[in-house]
Design a binder for these strands. Sequence first.
DNA 1: TCAATAGTGTCTGTAAGACAGTATTGT
DNA 2: ACAATACTGTCTTACAGACACTATTGA
Lengths: 228, 228
Amino acid sequence: MSDSYPCFAVTVDLVVLTIRDEELMVLLVNRGQPPFRGDLALPGGFVHPDEGLVEAAARELAEETGIAVGSMHLEQLASYGDPGRDPRQRVVTVAYLAMTPALPDPRPGSDADGASWLPAGAAARRPLAFDHQRILADGVERARAKLEYTPLATVFCPPEFTIAQLRRVYEIAWGRSLDPRNFHRKVTGTPGFVLPVDRSTAGTRGRPAQMYRRGLATRLHPPLLRED
Amino acid sequence: MSDSYPCFAVTVDLVVLTIRDEELMVLLVNRGQPPFRGDLALPGGFVHPDEGLVEAAARELAEETGIAVGSMHLEQLASYGDPGRDPRQRVVTVAYLAMTPALPDPRPGSDADGASWLPAGAAARRPLAFDHQRILADGVERARAKLEYTPLATVFCPPEFTIAQLRRVYEIAWGRSLDPRNFHRKVTGTPGFVLPVDRSTAGTRGRPAQMYRRGLATRLHPPLLRED
DNA sequence: TCAATAGTGTCTGTAAGACAGTATTGT
DNA sequence: ACAATACTGTCTTACAGACACTATTGA
């Protein structure tokens, strides 16, 4: 029942997604040491002995991106522990999914040096270190799916945004265009999705747009489904 | 980046759900050793050094219930690794969710001795060993949620079942009654949910019912939502 | 004035909830 | 016959998709 206590290494790895330059992007790092030296990998690292899993994920995220976790969404994705996924030793990794508004480029010389934003779709189809290709694919799919039934699309937007900006999030994440008028009606009609603020855009071509911030809802009723 | 390789124990724990006696039930074991000796706990145990996580979950499931995993649904739930969740040492557990048709009682004298089925709702509100109360609550909520948008309710049914049996699964899991006529129309009208077989019930009061088996769909479109 | 974007109204098809009504069995 | 359960049809309402139309700005 509990005869042996084998020793495992435990890591956290992060799928950090954002929308930049009209594309869904993922934060990847260049591995400086073997194994997989020179390959791209998800940011992550070993969990410290007296540290919780979320704390480890938040710490690694702050180390790699240089920003605090407070402003971004962070949730557990899944764990991966196939024997042989790390050639050195048995490692179980707990993957986390983070979603954030567009960030400036990682500054060279900072802890985040060597990290860069790459298009998520393309990255999920190229080899990455360890089983990170699989983890990335799972993370992208989770994010896409959660846009359907949660208001999480707002975490890709700045604190105040327009309905059109929010719509672009869906269009980019799902790779399909949405009718602006129906989307507007749907979003403003779903209680708790967005809250209007007393401000409008200015200096843009066309009629100024009402600005909104995140509402308090955690689930969308009814959901905003992507398929036909 | 990778200075220390702290040593963790890794376990798998199982939330095994079924429907028995018109109730959602969970398989719990009595802990025979400290810590939490005498308390109820989820079945589970240490992952072997050369064993994958799913393999470990399937092995523990077979050991505790005495049946092969082949006939039941098994999916990863989440991982739990707060420092101090096990008073002996640092343990990270990967929890799995299993769903199965009604099984006979665990036979005394078998490996599954000491295991028993308890109502899941009540068990999720009573103290269990470690953080198993939280894991159980997460598992029950995951199962309830997945009934909405997947055909997983069928894994609680025998290989061949009637629409009324399937409806009871939803009613028991969600704690609300569903209109038999609308449910019938919805289920038979969702492609890939159920497939009719050339058989009917007999010996029952009332008109015999057509029997069905699981379809090939993995998601329900549109979903079968529980809230109003 | 025109182009562009924001936002509203309207129509139509689909599907869910409510529930009347028909079908087929055991008692 | 009657009760019980299976199944079908109909009505109403809600909502998604399509798209005409109005509103408000910059060029």
